[in-house]
Amino acid sequence: MGTQTNVRKMIHDNIVSNKNWFDKMVPKILFLAALVSVITTLGIVATLIFDTVKFFQMVSFSEVFSTELAPLRAQNPTFGILPLINGTVFSSLIAMAVAGPVGLTAAIYLSQFASERVRNFLKPIMEILAGIPTIVYGFFAYSFVTPLLMKVIPGLGAKNVLSPGLVMGVMIIPIVASLSEDAMNSVPKTISEAALGLGSTRFEVAIKVVLPAAISGIMASFVLGISRAIGETMIVTIASGSSKAFTFDITQSMQTMTSYIVEFTSGDAGTGTAGYYSLYAVGLILLLFTLVMNLIAQYISHRFREEY
């Protein structure tokens, strides 16, 4: 013990005495590199707040929280954000209606039922699913899922919120599944094996023992899935269109906050107009939405974690 600490001290002294100017500079340079990520965050927050303030100087607060959104109208454009929030909430809910149950039950299957061989086959496929760019899912939603749904649902619009919602759900399955599976795998084997030893079936162990013990991680995975759905851009931009009507009809086009940003930047929003600044106001609200979701997820996984 004593010799070990002596050696460590010798090493330390050696490091200190051997420092030349280059070795002294290195940590400072590396620190500057590490600052880039901090500056990026500050930059994001600063640009969003800076331009949002300008936006609210042009547009009244009450107008923003209205249901009328017509930013491109030549005369008297209006900037009600409620249709966008509505579209975001609906598309995310549809996505979670798919990703929640499918992701969770897939996680239960992978962690409780599947053999090693099956798992080794399934997990890479989940990884492939997670690695496909969202633009590809967007193309899939628009050119395959929507025409397919049109045959089943007669009144479905060519642009609607249902199809991208479903496809977004497929995209989020791997996220929910892998995070939930991690949570269930971290439940000690001793507990589930004790239940099996008492004569429970695997299903009973999964539902009555593992699920309650892993519930914090599972809930966190759902919240992170929602956060991902809220921030998802290309699928909804392509397949949900840009209708700014305030509607609850999921067979029709709805615009989300993300696709509003895309539509407006690819259009001719000149710098200095209320339309240009509205981008940043929507961006700020979007950032707050995802930030709140992530904080909730962190809170859940810390607050309700079962320690073993």
């Binding site: 956060s227 921030g231 940003i261 981008l279 940043y280 979007l286 950032l287 995802t290 930030l291 992530n294």
Partner: peptide, 17 residues
Amino acid sequence: NLASVPSVIFGLLGLAV
């Protein structure tokens, strides 16, 4: 936290900066 910021927001940062 930066890893969970939606990519479209990075676009806004890029556009502004």
